[in-house]
């Protein structure tokens, strides 16, 4: 099996789906001639031409709205946000139009489209470029939210997202683009809404997604030294959530820690904890712990930026707390 980067996996998914379905096209800033701001669309202009790989002006609200209109009339757009921070310019289109169209038209107008791009903090890019928006998107009925952590997951899920008949928010991560993993040459897809146990364990369920899985894996290694066996659960999709997988893990471990890179108040972890309490309260031997970003906008200065974000020591401490281990 060839080892390819997360970035290449995304590229393959788009290329394969565009080969398969002539209604699929890519639109966004610098996706064509520049080969993508993060080179995710490398070579796609050359392969598909400017009709299907479309560079736009810096007009997020309107090119997102354009994609919604195109989707309502039979195309399957992939919108690339240079970063999800800039999707905020298009929030009205996403919230009021993409998410609501099918419902308020009484089922007449599905909006089959993908909105993808990197999300989450980069490195020292300060407050306006460091948003984690998944909890906002997940709050809106009508949207699906996918956040893969590996190239394998990214490829399989992006192909499913493109084939899905709903607007799918597909949040990648800049700091994952360069990481490699094995990805089969044969065609495959992964279902939206199905998570995966990334590492088996018996003492505690550690739920993390996207880049936070790297921290979770590191924490797991450290905790092993202390004799604590950690099971890492990656939901891969935030909405719909694979509660079944999570509950199954908790029935084994009876303890849970949820890590998310975004802010705490109204975060994804709050929703997951609520669902877990409702599904398997009796199984829990300790209250769920959450590790999140602190409640401040992200600063530029390195040390206080790091102190604002979830860290391996915080995850280790949270696991020890739920295990009553000191």
């Amino acid at each position: 099996m060839p080892s390819i980067t997360y970035r290449e996996a995304l590229n393959q998914a788009m290329v394969e789906e565009m080969e398969r379905d002539p209604t699929v096209f890519l639109i966004g800033e610098e996706v064509a001639e520049y080969n993508g701001p993060y080179k995710v669309s490398q070579g796609m202009l050359e392969r598909f031409g400017p009709r299907r790989v479309v560079d736009t002006p810096i007009s997020e609200a309107s090119f997102t709205g354009l994609a919604i209109g195109a989707a309502m009339t039979g195309l399957r757009p992939i919108v690339e946000f240079m970063s999800f921070n800039f999707s905020l310019m298009a929030f009205d289109q996403i919230f009021s139009n993409a998410a609501k169209m099918l419902y308020m038209s009484g089922g007449q107008f599905p909006v089959p489209m993908v909105m993808r791009g990197p999300g989450g903090p980069g490195s020292q890019v300060s407050s306006q470029h460091s948003n984690c928006l998944e909890s906002l998107f997940a709050n809106v009925p009508g949207l699906k939210v996918v956040m893969p952590a590996t190239g394998y997951d990214a490829k399989g899920l992006l192909k499913s997202a493109i084939r899905d008949n709903n607007p799918v928010i597909f949040i990648e991560n800049e700091l994952l683009y360069g990481l490699s993993c094995d990805v089969p040459e044969e065609e495959y897809t992964l279902p939206i809404g199905v998570g995966e146990i990334k590492a088996a364990g018996s003492d505690v369920t550690l739920l993390a997604y996207s880049r936070m899985l790297l921290l979770a894996a590191e924490a797991r290694g450290e905790l092993e030294q202390d004799g604590i066996s950690v099971e890492i659960v990656d939901p891969r999709t935030i909405k719909p959530l694979d509660l079944e997988l999570i509950a199954k893990s908790i029935r084994k471990t009876h303890r849970m820690v949820i890590v998310e890179e975004g802010n705490r108040f109204g975060g994804v972890g709050a929703e997951i904890a609520d669902q877990v309490y409702r599904a398997c309260f009796d199984e829990l031997d300790a209250p769920i712990e959450r590790v999140t970003q602190k409640e401040n906008p992200l600063p530029y200065a390195k040390a206080i930026e790091a102190a604002s974000l979830p860290s391996v020591p915080e995850i280790v401490a949270a696991v020890k707390t739920v295990c009553y281990h000191n």
């Binding site: 921070n85 800039f86 905020l88 310019m89 020292q124 890019v125 300060s126 407050s127 306006q128 470029h129 600063p299 530029y300 200065a301 206080i304």
Partner: peptide, 21 residues
Amino acid sequence: GKGGSMHFFSKEKNLLGGHGI
């Protein structure tokens, strides 16, 4: 130190910012 290159602000000089969006 919170803004960095993109976000210079100065109340004293009436600079209402460097803006990243």
